[in-house]
Amino acid sequence: MMKAYFKPFLTVFLILLADQSLKFWIKLNMSLGQEYHIIGNRAIIHFTENNGMAFGMEFGGEAGKLALTLFRIVAVCAIGYGVIHLIKHKYHRGLILNVALIFAGAMGNIIDSTFYGLLFNESTYFQASKFLPVDGGYAGLFHGKVVDMFYFPLIEGTFPNWFPLWSGESFIFFRPIFNVADAAISIGVIAILIFQKTYFKEEKQEKIYPHNEIIEE
């Protein structure tokens, strides 16, 4: 039975390791807004931080930040329980892996929100932050900022005049800046939506034919 837990939780460990290692490096070596162009202007490491949700979205100031962080902690506990439940009941391995990706991503951003305010001083546009500064961190428990860095402005253009709401306005795809944790959550959710029929097919068959009963015509 322990073997069934190995791959999902190894996936969680590797995602967290990649996510937190990159975020620590960014915080300690880059100032806010600093960039490294990987593939011209189409793939960029751009250091930014946000107070809210995935892909840089914001939510309700300090009180909203605290509420969101606490909600995340409750949600990640529920997702972690869900992973264990799926493993115990031998659900499709693909479903288990993708829920593990969502769990790892949620954990990665919770670590930022919960502890980064205590672990680092404020990153500025002039200098990188320091780990465990003598004067203390930039915020209290549960009030840390999430570190984002991946920016892929693949397509830039202008909406045509006939386009509703945004006619004539410029656009960039893909505008949001995100991190490894965001990517893990997105991949997990999208994969579940795409392969849901495969993932839940066996479960439906089990309900229709419980205990592998043979139905004779």
Rank of each mutant, 00 (worst) to 15 (best):
M1F: 04
M2Q: 03
K3V: 06
F6P: 00
K7G: 06
F9M: 02
V12E: 05
V12Q: 05
V12M: 11
I15C: 12
L17M: 14
L17P: 02
A18W: 11
A18K: 04
K23D: 02
W25F: 08
W25E: 01
K27I: 11
M30H: 12
G33E: 14
I38W: 15
G40R: 09
N41D: 15
R42Y: 15
R42S: 13
R42L: 05
R42Q: 11
A43L: 08
A43P: 11
E49Q: 15
N50G: 15
G52L: 11
M53Q: 12
A54T: 14
F55E: 06
G61M: 13
G61F: 10
E62R: 07
E62H: 07
G64P: 05
G64N: 08
T69V: 09
L70C: 11
I73G: 08
V76T: 13
V76E: 02
Y81E: 00
V83G: 03
I84D: 07
I84E: 05
H85V: 09
K90L: 07
Y91S: 12
Y91K: 14
H92V: 03
R93H: 10
L95M: 00
I96P: 03
I96S: 04
N98M: 11
N98E: 00
N98A: 00
A100G: 13
F103E: 03
G105F: 05
A106M: 13
G108R: 08
N109S: 10
N109V: 15
N109T: 14
I110G: 07
I111V: 15
I111P: 01
T114Q: 00
F115T: 06
L118N: 01
L118K: 06
S123D: 12
A128N: 09
A128R: 06
S129D: 08
L132R: 05
L132D: 04
P133E: 10
Y138W: 08
Y138V: 04
A139E: 08
L141C: 00
L141I: 07
H143D: 03
H143P: 04
V146E: 13
D148P: 12
M149S: 12
F150I: 12
F150Q: 01
P153L: 07
L154G: 09
E156W: 08
G157T: 01
F159T: 01
F163Q: 02
F163H: 08
L165I: 14
S167A: 14
G168I: 10
I172T: 13
I172Q: 01
F173H: 01
F173N: 03
F174W: 10
P176V: 12
P176N: 03
F178T: 06
F178H: 08
N179W: 06
N179L: 13
A191N: 05
Q196W: 12
T198Q: 11
F200L: 14
F200Q: 07
E203C: 07
E203M: 07
K204V: 15
Q205A: 04
E206N: 10
I208D: 11
H211E: 07
E213Q: 11
E213A: 09
